[in-house]
Design a protein around this nucleic acid. Structure first.
Lengths: 195, 195
DNA sequence: CACGATAAGGAACCGTGTTCCGTTTCGCAA
DNA sequence: TTGCGAAACGGAACACGGTTCCTTATCGTG
C-alpha cells in the first residue's frame, strides 16, 4: 500500500501535512472508540478523541462506512488473502471453507456492532456492504466452487447467500454470553454438506 | 417474573371511552405504518395516522416494544400454539421442528424490520426480546427435546441459541431478493441432524 | 349540571447526524 | 523572510426523531 494513495487510483492532488496528520489521528481515534463504544459511536466522540472538529471527519470520511472501511481495511485484506492459502493447505475444500469462515466470523464478532451495521438497509451503509462483498465474495465463491467440484457440498447455495447468512449469525454475538455465533455458523456449514 | 398476568385483561381500573377508542386507533395505525415503514417508523407518523398527539402513544404504550407486542401479540400466540399441534401431527419431531420454524420465519420475514429490532441490544427492546423468548422459547425447547429424544438431532444446542440464530438469519430478508432466509434456516436445521 | 379525575395535545427539550461559514494554517514563491 | 491564495479547520447552526412537561379538553358520576 502507498502512503498517500487513497486507493481510488487517480493522481492524488497531494494533501497538506496537517490533513494527513488529522487523518491518521482520526483513524487511531476511531479504532479506539469503536472498541469501547462500537462502530456506531457518536461522531462527536470520535472527533473529540482525535482532537478535531466534527466537520473534519466529514471532510476525510464523508460517510461512516468509509471510516469503518478505512479502519478495518487491512484486516479485511488479510482475510481475503487467507482464502487461497487455506484452500491449498487444507485436507479438503470443505475444510478450507470452514476454516476461512471461522476467520471471517472471528473478525466480525470482535468488532462491536459491525455485523449489525453490515446488514443495515440504511443507504449510508450500502457502501460498507458493497465493500465487504467486493473484497470477500470472490474468495468465498472460490472456496464454495472448489467444495462443490470435490462433491462435498450441494451446489444449491450461492456464495452470496452463505456470506450474508454468516454475517447475520454474527449479529449481537459479542453482547450475549448465551449465544455462540461460531457454533451456529459451524452448524450451517455442516448443513451444506452432501449426505 | 410476571405478576400472574402481564396482559391487559383483568383488574383494569376501568378506562374511559375515549382512551379505549384511541388505543384501538393507535393499534390500527401502528399496524398500517409498520407494514409500509417498518417497525421503527417515527412515533410521530403513527400518532399522525391515528389522529392523536405523540404523548398519547406514550401514555398507552410507554415503550416501542410494548406497542409492537400489542400489535403482534395475536400472531405470536398463534405461533406458540402451533408447536404442540405440529408435534402431534407430523411424521417425526424433527419434521415438526422444521415446520414450526418455518412458521416462525414466515412471521418474522413479513414484519419489516422486526427481526433486526428483536436482536437489538438497545435497552428499550430487551422487553421485546424477552416477550418473544418467554412466549416461544418453551415451545421451541419442547420440539427440540422431542427430536433429541427420538435420536434425530444432537443434544448439543440449546433451544435459545437456535431461536436466536433463526431470528438473526431473518434480518434484512424482506429487502434483498438475493437473500432467502428460509433456505438458510432450512440448512441450519438440516445441520442439526445427527449423521 | 357541575365538578374532579382522566386523558389529550402539542410545544419544548435533548441527543445525534449533517451542513455552513468565517477563521486559521500551510506551502509556495517572490 | 514575508505575503498570499488555497486548503483545511472548528464549531455554531440546522434537521430530525425520541421523550417529557404543562396546559386544556373531555368524560362520567353525583
Amino acid at each position: 500500500m502507498n502512503d498517500s494513495d487513497d486507493g481510488k487510483g487517480q493522481a492524488a492532488p497531494r494533501k497538506r501535512a496537517d490533513a494527513r496528520r488529522n487523518e491518521r489521528a482520526l483513524l487511531d481515534a476511531a479504532a479506539a472508540v469503536f472498541v469501547t463504544s462500537g462502530v456506531e459511536a457518536p461522531i462527536r466522540d470520535i472527533a473529540a478523541r482525535a482532537g478535531v472538529g466534527v466537520a473534519t471527519i466529514y471532510r476525510h470520511f464523508p460517510t461512516r462506512a468509509e471510516l469503518i472501511i478505512a479502519v478495518y481495511r487491512h484486516q479485511i485484506e488479510e482475510c481475503a488473502k487467507a482464502g487461497p492459502v487455506l484452500l491449498a493447505s487444507s485436507a479438503s475444500p470443505h475444510a478450507a471453507l470452514g476454516r476461512w469462515i471461522n476467520l471471517f466470523v472471528d473478525f466480525l464478532v470482535t468488532k462491536h456492532g459491525l455485523a449489525a451495521v453490515l446488514q443495515s438497509d440504511d443507504a449510508g451503509f450500502q457502501q460498507l456492504h458493497g465493500y465487504f462483498l467486493e473484497r470477500l465474495l470472490p474468495v468465498c465463491a472460490e472456496l464454495v466452487a472448489a467444495a462443490v467440484e470435490a462433491g462435498e457440498i450441494l451446489p444449491d447455495l450461492e456464495a452470496y447467500e452463505l456470506m450474508r447468512g454468516v454475517g447475520n449469525l454474527c449479529i449481537g454475538a459479542e453482547s450475549d454470553p448465551r449465544y455462540d455465533a461460531r457454533r451456529l455458523v459451524g452448524l450451517l456449514v455442516e448443513g451444506l454438506r452432501r449426505r
